[in-house]
Design a protein around this nucleic acid. Structure first.
Length: 280
DNA sequence: CCCACGACCTGTGGGC
DNA sequence: TGCCCACAGGTCGTGG
């Protein structure tokens, strides 16, 4: 998936096309996703107006009101590992793995495609959104006021799990995935294998800064360089953003003055890229 | 409670 | 050229 920057890029891309528009229909072509698309969904959102397109962690939240809805509701979309959401003319021919179309009164459609089916879509009452379990369990947004060194220190305290595993835990901080954890730890010169509880407190400031910076820079260039990530308007070619360590095994470490070579190791089943010399 | 690991899916790229 | 295996951005449930 798309980690936070890709989700945010998608949000910014679709927002002007959906906000203020009415839902003409929701067409579900292939309901099998991480969780089966509820059969009741199309009838519920019919005729509703999209008030806002927001993001929380790696979820996209479309605020809906009116139409068949008896109370304001939120359409929650997760892109999983391979999902993408694009705005297209309604008549655009469908492709394999197109799961649903949110048809709008503008003549455009918001189309969800997801080959690996790890994505999801669900509807929940806006007023009770805190009760929606996956949403409630998310940690602070990395750019929000709650994301401080102290907020990392609390969950890290006494933990023997690796710093990498802790940062991938969405309850600790929302939005990081495998790529940006590797990038942030390299910037902060912290070994991904270090037990979270053993990291000196004074290093948490630089770590939070590294996390914010890495994500912000990725959003600036439009959501990194994922091979099959396409912007909401279909524009391709996000290759201007170069990762410093991710997928760079064998290359020289980009840290100024460092003579290390980027290594790859499997950690908890996922590839970790790091510099064995300057990350300690 | 904590932690590691397998499961869920399909597509693709590299090695032979 | 073609086949097969390893691996890919994320959760979530389990079993120790």
């Amino acid at each position: 998936m798309p980690e936070l920057p890709e989700v945010e890029t998608t949000r910014r891309g679709v927002e002007p096309h959906v906000v203020g528009h009415r839902v003409r229909a929701l067409l579900v072509h292939e309901p099998r996703l991480r969780w089966r698309v509820p059969a009741s969904l199309p009838a519920k959102v019919q005729g509703a107006t999209v008030l806002a397109a927001e993001r929380r962690a790696k979820y996209l939240l479309f605020r809906l009101e009116g139409g068949a809805l008896t109370a304001p509701a939120t359409l929650l979309v997760h892109l999983g590992m391979s999902g993408n959401l694009r705005v297209l003319p309604a008549a655009t021919p469908r492709l394999t793995h197109d799961h649903f179309d949110l048809m709008l009164d503008s003549g455009e459609t918001l189309r969800f495609n997801d080959p690996r089916r790890f994505g999801s879509v669900d509807l929940w009452p806006t007023g009770a959104i805190a009760d929606w379990a996956p949403y409630a369990a998310r940690g602070p947004e990395p750019w929000g006021p709650d994301f401080t060194p102290d907020h990392l220190a609390r969950p890290f305290k006494g933990r023997v799990a690796s710093i990498k595993a802790m940062l991938l835990d969405q309850r600790v901080v929302a939005g990081l995935g495998n790529i940006y954890v590797c990038e942030a730890l390299h910037r902060a010169h912290i070994s991904p294998f270090k037990p979270a509880g053993g990291i000196a407190k004074k290093r948490l400031g630089p770590l939070t800064t590294a996390i914010k910076d890495v994500l912000a820079e990725a959003v600036e260039v439009g959501g990194s360089t994922l091979k099959d990530f396409a912007a909401a308007d279909g524009a391709l070619g996000y290759f201007q953003h170069r990762f410093r360590v991710y997928d760079r095994e064998g290359e020289p470490c980009p840290t100024p003055g460092c003579k290390g070579v980027i290594a790859r190791e499997v950690q908890a089943g996922r590839s970790t890229f790091f510099c064995p010399v300057c990350q300690v």
